[in-house]
Design a protein around this nucleic acid. Sequence first.
DNA 1: AACAGCTATATGCATAAAACATATAAAGGA
DNA 2: TCCTTTATATGTTTTATGCATATAGCTGTT
Lengths: 135, 135
Amino acid sequence: MCYCHKGHHFHHSKEGCPGFRMEKFIQPCMLLLLYERPAHGYELMERLAQLGFVGHIDPGAVYRNLRKMEEDGLVKSEWESGESGPAKRRYVLTPEGEEAIHGWAVHVRYQMERLKAFLDKYEEFFKDGGNKKTD
Amino acid sequence: MCYCHKGHHFHHSKEGCPGFRMEKFIQPCMLLLLYERPAHGYELMERLAQLGFVGHIDPGAVYRNLRKMEEDGLVKSEWESGESGPAKRRYVLTPEGEEAIHGWAVHVRYQMERLKAFLDKYEEFFKDGGNKKTD
DNA sequence: AACAGCTATATGCATAAAACATATAAAGGA
DNA sequence: TCCTTTATATGTTTTATGCATATAGCTGTT
């Protein structure tokens, strides 16, 4: 489902309907998942569903952001081969990465307050139990 | 203050430190302010402070987004001259614009849930009263 | 009159991010 | 062999953002 502001119902990532962009949000999410336990990109892609990345994960975004975060020293990786399936690049969090999570948490709380300020004002203007569908 | 994930303390919009980008969020915010009452860009720029746009509002973003929303039929404008000061372009919300607000509200609630999912997981891992500064 | 400062709108440009498509390749099963 | 799944990676195009700058009328001051 597309949760954009236009009230569409088609699958996300089709027909170009971005709300405000939060895809960089994938970074703190992956860091948190890596804090939980080391993983490779493909696995993260699946576990991101826990954090609301449902139905529209771009592998490009996952892998590119992992490489970017490795460049920034937030994660490090090594090839893991020999088992079943193709070789995987196993990522682990660095101490810098763990620090970054705390920084992101502050940032995320701040942004949440902004969203809340919007919704508070919205509900003040359109109060009908907080759901516009009462009529 | 910069609320980015890197823990900086300098003034925002300096040294390039974006968290995830939410500047398009200015659109629903301006629509809501215009629902409250018609206004021109400069006034909106000031009233945006109510919604957490503090200290770092780019006039370019304001005017560009207003024109964009007019293109999209969400607002309409007319020149208002004759009073004191230079001519102003007075924006009013259209019915489509009001509809868009409701769409945005749904979208914003959804994004808030995503942020909350992140923070819940974060606090589950780093529980110390919700504040990392207890040590 | 000259000038600075404020109000007000607008545009240009360089870079960053996002959307989307596609390439590569190993392994497993039919 | 061929298709599917797992797994990683890159390229291209469009859109968004950050930042600087242009324009212009009005106000108050000297």
